[in-house]
Each structure stands twice: as structure tokens, then as C-alpha cells.
Design a protein around this nucleic acid. Structure first.
Lengths: 113, 113
DNA sequence: TGACTCCATCCGCTTATCCGGATATATTTT
DNA sequence: AAAATATATCCGGATAAGCGGATGGAGTCA
């Protein structure tokens, strides 16, 4: 039960929702991508990513210098359904849309400096 | 977006999840029923009910001296889907099961003293 | 090895949340 | 109107969460 509460708590923060919204759209992103899209300092982004990872929402994978985060492919069926719901919740959110546009803003393919 | 975060925040507490689990099973319950089932003081139960109401999860209806709470019948489709998911999450929770048994414990029909 | 970049974690601080006893309000009963 | 019951809200204190600069580890390239 506590775990279920923790699970929902991981969604109870605007920054984390914005990150999930971006990952629902982008497949994989590194921390510096997210910093730029969210316009938030690195420590803040990193901390929220750690929480999402801890809650089982994202996986991380190091590729050279950078660490890419992506939505976890859960074997829990209801988790996938919740992702669908979440995507619907977030689809029309102005903040999330602005984040995506900012992400697209710095050119296709030449992210991460 | 903030509202979406608030919505999930309302599920990010074990007591509120226990209340929802009881209401998923019982149709309607008054505060004193919940106090007995959860074994929590009245102010605590009442406060959490207010938050659930504020988040749109429950409706309240006064009948004489007591106020009955029940799951809100939402016109938002995804809300209903989330309830289904929630019910599945909570179905096997030992704490929730114990709550239900405690509720059934004080006799059928003669609740609320 | 040294310099550089990306990222995770530490730190002190501020703000939010939860708790439960105490108090206030509403309704019924006498 | 007074007493009794059920519920909502207030209050002070404790705990948790969020923030962002600073520090340090890990990887890359020279």
C-alpha cells in the first residue's frame, strides 16, 4: 500500500509530469536535453529523474558521456494503461507543448551541444 | 498541468488510498464508519475526505446527522478508467483487506452507533 | 596525466504536508 | 433552549519534499 502511494507520489509533481510528457513524445533524452527543454538547473532535473527511475517510470542507459533516459517498458499491464491515460492527460497541456517546442528548437539531431 | 499534479497528489497518501479502497467496495460510508474501519481519529479522516472531495474523487451528501461519502461519478472518461486501475492496484492490498473486514466487523446494517 | 564535459549527490534553506487534540458548526432529540 | 452526536475546521509542531549552488565521480579526448 505504501508502495502504491509512493507510485502515485512520483506523478504528483509538475516537473516530473513535464519530463514524462517529453519522454512520451521523444523516446530517449539525456539530462542536458531536458535541462534545455525545461529551463531548469541540472541538479533539479537529475533529482527528478532519479525519483522517476526509483518509481519504475524510466530506465537510464549510459552512452559515452551522456546518460539517456527513456520510458520504462513495464511488464505490469496496468502501468501501460496508466501511461496511456497519462498521455491523454498531458496531450493538451500548454506547458508540455511549450517544452516540446523548446526541445525541437535547438535543431534536429544536434542536441547535447 | 499543476492541476494534473494535484490530481495525482490526492492519490499519493496511504490513508486516502485506504478510503478510496473502502468506497470502491462499499458504495457509501459516513465519517464514523471510516474512523472505525481505519482506526484513525476523526479530524484525520475528515481532513483526508476533504482533500479527496476537493480533487473530485468523492461526493458528500448529508443525511440527517451524518454525512455520507461516495465515489464521484465522473463524466471524465479517463477518471473512470483510472478508478478501474486503482481498484486493481488495491484489490490485493493486505491493509485494504483488513480495513474491509474491520468495517464488516461491527455488524450488518447497524453502523454509525 | 590533465583538461573538459556530463551527470549524481551533498548541503543548507524554504515550503508543503501530515498529524491529532481542541474548538466550532450543524442537526436531531428532549 | 439545552444536551447530545456527527462532522468540519483551527492550531502548533513534526516530518517530508522541493530547490539550486557546490562538490565530486565517471567518461572522453588530447
Amino acid at each position: 500500500m505504501k508502495q502504491t502511494a509512493r507510485f502515485f507520489k512520483s506523478l504528483a509533481d509538475e516537473t516530473r509530469l513535464r519530463i514524462l510528457a517529453l519522454l512520451l513524445a521523444e523516446e530517449k533524452l539525456c539530462v542536458c536535453d531536458l535541462m534545455a527543454a525545461l529551463e531548469l538547473p541540472q541538479s533539479t532535473v537529475s533529482r527528478h529523474l532519479a525519483q522517476l527511475k526509483n518509481a519504475g517510470w524510466v530506465d537510464d542507459r549510459r552512452e559515452g558521456v551522456w546518460v539517456y533516459y527513456s520510458l520504462a517498458t513495464s511488464d505490469i499491464p496496468s502501468r501501460g494503461e496508466l501511461q496511456t491515460l497519462l498521455a491523454r492527460y498531458l496531450a493538451t497541456e500548454p506547458v508540455a507543448i511549450a517544452d516540446r517546442e523548446r526541445l525541437a528548437g535547438f535543431g534536429q539531431g544536434n542536441r547535447c551541444a
